[in-house]
Nucleic acid binder design. Structure first.
Length: 564
RNA sequence: AGCGGGUUUGUGUAAUGGUAGCACACCGGACUCUGACUCCGUUUGUGAGGGUUCGAAUCCUUCACCCGCUGCCA
């Protein structure tokens, strides 16, 4: 019974639930706080950088949870701090989300749309005696923060509401410089949770905002703004990462002291960690700003656009995020699992093409000089509907150096003197020897073809153990192929005093020149992905390709060849 | 130290008092117009102790270890 309900791809039951679903089920159950309401979530990136695969996990949880409950998920730019934010990022974020295939319809919002409302709510808190204007400088506030066993202090805590209200108005009017004062919530200076030690609600920042311009010189803090944004949008479940767990009491405090109908619930989950991968926006930004990489879309970056350029498909990334699961335990997923998800998708969708990465000439000595012919080869054996393509064949070909050995070793079934192999889609050939230079290096492999094996099937039906790929020397196109690794290799980047820049993988990038690819690939366009037979999956990088020169990025590695 | 979380095989995640399962990885084997893909198979796990129970990953208890929090960042 349970067997039949499993999906073939993942082996998971469609009904599989995570702990978030369990919470939501509780909430909507008879008597629960959200019974009868539509589940409503949101994805709230701060537009201060590009999205990376960690965001895709959040995207998947936010949109996926809404979908599971037939609800909705909003896209909201959490732009409450003009210091780092920019419209450039807004557009990039939207583009990446769309590329991944998530849709927000018309539910696109900015936190800055609610600045008036937030200001009004802040006035309300002041009038109720729940917030006050504090004149401590940032340095003083830090000094008076207290510690684990001593409470914080503020001499302004008992300021009359009317006076705080006046000061708050004057803060907004621009009478005070940055840092001169803050609006603080009056909660509990002795709380073991520092977030409740009268947290700042508003700070002064005389800086133009990317959307509101110079209208404001005071901006709400995340802890004040976020529950308001959620409540105003009717969010029922505000899903965020674990580091906000200790902020939840504050989230609830704000939520419960503002006059909104919606009372959203915050639920936290563990953020995505992948080994060998830099997943901190701050660090990624540094790589871009210090020109360690060519940009946010450098193929070594774990950004959505970087992965896209490296050949990752939306389906593979989303499938990965769906399959890694959701929990509250810190975890590090193996990068190899992402690669697996990509291979799985690409195997079904990528076109096959022949490319020789490390070429050596193969001469068919009994094939007429000057003769050439075309063969029809399937584009994807998994999908016959993808049709056939024509590849040229001639007396001189290129094959992989690794497909020839002077003497057979172990389970090597490819070309060695006396052995027959099939040239993919063309003829069966028998190796007759090789040519060497004065240093003893093999410069050319020699073979004879069987004219009665056109298309690759010997007329007498004899079994050919192995097949290799090749390209026609006369028509092959030169290409450059880049093998990308992750930029980061140190698994403990934040180790004592060690700058993460010194942990970067110096071999994150290898360029193979002199590669030979099929003529037809000249007409290929990004983001077409190809499987170059045993060599793995590659995508054409139009961004770096110049006329007459093709550049391919390797998206994943395949397992190694024969075993000795 | 105060507060809040966490701990199931190498990795990630199921099992919510009733056979510890799945995926990836690994190893072994088979197949093949490529050794890719696919297929078959093996090994490996409930942090530790005590308790409740016919029965505990699950409930209680003690301990250990790990993570987060003292921004006018989000």
């Amino acid at each position: 019974m349970a067997e039949e309900t499993k999906t073939p791809e993942t082996g998971e039951t469609p009904e599989s639930r995570n702990f978030i679903h369990a919470f939501i089920d509780e909430d909507i159950a008879e008597g629960g706080q959200f019974q009868g309401k539509t589940v409503h979530t949101r994805f709230p990136p701060e537009p201060n950088g590009y999205l990376h695969i960690g965001h895709c996990k959040a995207l998947s949880i936010d949109f996926g949870t809404a979908e599971k409950y037939n609800g909705m998920c909003n896209l909201r730019m959490d732009d409450t701090n003009p210091t780092k934010e920019d419209e450039e990022y807004v557009d990039a974020i939207k583009e990446d989300i769309l590329w991944l295939g998530f849709t927000w319809d018309d539910r696109f919002y900015y936190a800055s749309d609610y600045f008036d409302k937030m200001y009004e709510f802040a006035e309300g808190l002041i009038k109720q005696g729940l917030a006050y204007v504090c004149e401590l400088t940032p340095e003083q506030m830090k000094e008076m923060r207290g510690d684990l066993t001593h409470p914080a202090q503020s001499p302004y805590r008992d300021r009359p509401a009317a006076e705080s209200l006046d000061l708050f108005h004057r803060m907004k009017a621009g009478e005070f410089p940055n840092g001169a004062m803050t609006l603080r919530a009056r909660i509990d200076l002795a709380s073991g949770n520092f977030n409740l030690r009268d947290p700042a609600l508003y700070r002064i920042n005389h800086m133009a905002h990317h959307r509101t311009g110079d209208k404001w010189c005071i901006y709400p803090m995340y802890d004040f703004a976020h529950p308001i944004e959620d409540a105003l949008e009717g969010i029922t479940h505000s899903l965020c990462s674990l580091e906000f767990e200790s902020h939840r009491p504050l989230y609830n405090w704000v939520r419960d002291h503002i006059p909104t109908e919606a009372k959203p619930r915050q639920i936290e989950f563990a953020r995505l960690g992948i080994n060998y991968t830099v997943m901190s926006k701050r660090k990624l930004r540094r790589l871009v700003e210090e020109n360690v990489v060519s940009g946010w879309d450098d193929p070594r970056m774990p950004t959505i656009c970087g992965l896209r350029r490296r050949g990752y498909t939306p389906a593979s990334i989303r499938n990965f995020c769906d399959r890694i699961g959701v929990s509250k335990a810190d975890s590090t997923v193996e990068f190899g699992f992402l690669e697996h998800c990509l291979r799985e998708d690409l195997n079904m969708t990528a076109k096959r093409a022949m490319a020789v990465l490390r070429p050596i000439k193969l001469t068919i000595t009994n094939y007429p000089e000057g003769k050439s012919e075309a063969f029809e080869v399937e584009n994807n054996p998994e999908r016959p509907e993808d049709g056939m393509r024509s590849v040229m064949f001639g007396r001189e070909l290129f094959i992989e150096r690794e497909d020839f050995m002077e003497e057979k070793v172990g389970k090597f079934f490819r070309l060695y003197p006396g052995n027959e192999v099939r040239l993919k889609g063309a003829y069966v050939v028998k190796c007759t020897g090789c040519v060497k230079d004065e240093n003893g290096n093999v410069t050319e492999v020699l073979a004879e073809y069987d004219p009665d094996s056109r298309g690759g099937d010997p007329a007498d039906g004899r079994k050919i153990k192995s097949t290799i790929h090749w390209v026609d020397a006369a028509t092959a196109v030169d290409a450059e192929i880049r093998l990308y690794d992750n930029l980061f290799v140190d698994s403990d980047p934040d180790g004592e005093g060690k700058d993460f820049m010194t942990c970067l993988n110096p071999d994150s990038f290898e360029t193979l020149t002199g590669c030979k690819v099929e003529q037809g690939l000249r007409d290929a366009t990004f983001p077409a992905a190809f499987q170059f037979m045993r060599q793995g999956y590659f995508c054409l990088d139009n961004k770096d390709s110049a006329p007459g020169r093709l550049v391919f990025n390797r998206s994943v590695s395949l397992k190694d060849g024969f075993k000795k």
